[in-house]
């Protein structure tokens, strides 16, 4: 399977920014500083279970329900 990481990242950005361009940018920066560069993942990125588990924790820390 592939693409789940991008979906999760997009959900986090959408949930935190609500479409506000400033918040899209700052949320992307926060994710990069946490080790998840949104540009590195696309629909063909493999569903690495370790990355997905870490991303779930990041979402929880950001108060985002996936």
């Amino acid at each position: 399977m592939a693409g789940q990481i991008k979906v999760m990242i997009d959900q986090i950005i959408e949930n935190r920014s609500k479409g506000n361009a400033l918040l899209v940018s700052t949320t992307q920066t926060k994710l990069i500083l946490k080790g998840f560069d949104p540009a590195k993942y696309d629909a063909s990125s493999p569903d690495d279970p370790a990355v997905i588990a870490r991303l779930r924790q990041v979402a929880a820390d950001l108060n985002v329900t996936l």
Partner: peptide, 11 residues
Amino acid sequence: MERIGDLTNVV
């Protein structure tokens, strides 16, 4: 900084 960023969208 990480915890602040988790809890608010204020810069």
